[in-house]
Design a protein around this nucleic acid. Structure first.
Length: 255
DNA sequence: GCGACAG
DNA sequence: ATCTTGTCGC
């Protein structure tokens, strides 16, 4: 599978991007509980950038929700499609993420994003946007606070405090390890907030961040530096150094 | 008007 | 996100 730098019809201005969010926002499904935590598959997605070389690399890593073992993974490399603008992160990350998800050899199940879903200025962050475009259940687990107010949850793992915006609860600050900073969980698409929290706790038996995002982060960084090396080597006869957008897939060793 | 602001 | 050494702690 190949991806282009910027998909046809992709918004080119901030105003156009906001208009897309306002139009797609209504397609978010909030009345489904989502898949039961600890069962089926859970997929982490993440993106790494090399703005100087205009390169972007995305990774999708599928885990068995019960064992957290890697079941499958895929990467996609392309050109940057949008600058980083708070509130418009999805337009920067989604093209590459979609390409990586499409390159997977097996169904993603629940998608865990690095960022926000409903806890967004227009209630349509990356996790919700990706969920609507794919139809997959999705949640957002962010490392840093964004547009909302909240109190710090108690010190113990498993405790949480509401994320409030415009009087409504748009997510929860969740402590995934005793004494460490909380992560910020919000619903993306077709998952309840309680289930999003339960999934996040199931994915953090040992670290602050979910295993899904840790795996995806490591993989997209590796894909990026390999792509950068290929570009540095320049166009050649060796297919492994081809600079054109590309993606790859791998099945986890079975048994 | 000014500051803040996922990755 | 990314630039970056050593260092404190589980």
């Amino acid at each position: 599978m190949r991806i282009t730098g910027v998909p046809a019809g992709w918004p080119a201005t901030e105003a156009a991007a906001r208009a897309v969010q306002d139009e797609l926002r209504g397609r978010v499904v909030l009345d489904e509980p989502g898949p039961p935590p600890g069962t089926g598959r859970v997929t982490g997605v993440d993106v790494a950038y090399d703005d100087a070389r205009d390169l972007v690399a995305a990774a999708a890593v599928v885990l068995d929700a019960a064992t957290l073992d890697v079941v499958a993974e895929a990467t996609a490399v392309g050109r940057v499609s949008f600058p980083y603008v708070p509130g418009l992160l999805a337009f920067r990350e989604i093209p590459a993420v979609l390409a990586a998800l499409e390159a997977l050899p097996s169904p993603p199940g629940l998608v865990v994003c690095d960022g926000y879903g409903l806890a967004h200025p227009r209630r349509f962050g990356l996790a919700s946007h990706l969920g609507v475009l794919t139809g997959l259940p999705s949640i957002g687990v962010a490392k840093n606070p964004f547009t909302f107010t909240h109190d710090d949850p108690p010190r113990a793992r498993g405790t949480s405090a509401p994320l409030r915006a415009g009087g409504e609860e748009v997510g929860r600050a969740l402590r995934t390890r005793d004494g460490t900073r909380p992560v910020y969980v919000s619903v993306g698409h077709r998952v309840s907030l309680d289930n999003a929290l339960a999934h996040t706790l199931a994915l953090t038996p040992r670290h602050r961040l979910p295993e899904t995002t840790r795996r995806a982060d490591a993989l997209c960084r590796r894909a990026l530096r390999e792509a950068a090396q290929g570009q540095f080597a320049g166009p050649g006869q060796d297919s492994s150094t081809d600079p054109s957008p590309d993606s790859s897939t791998r099945q986890a060793p079975t048994s």
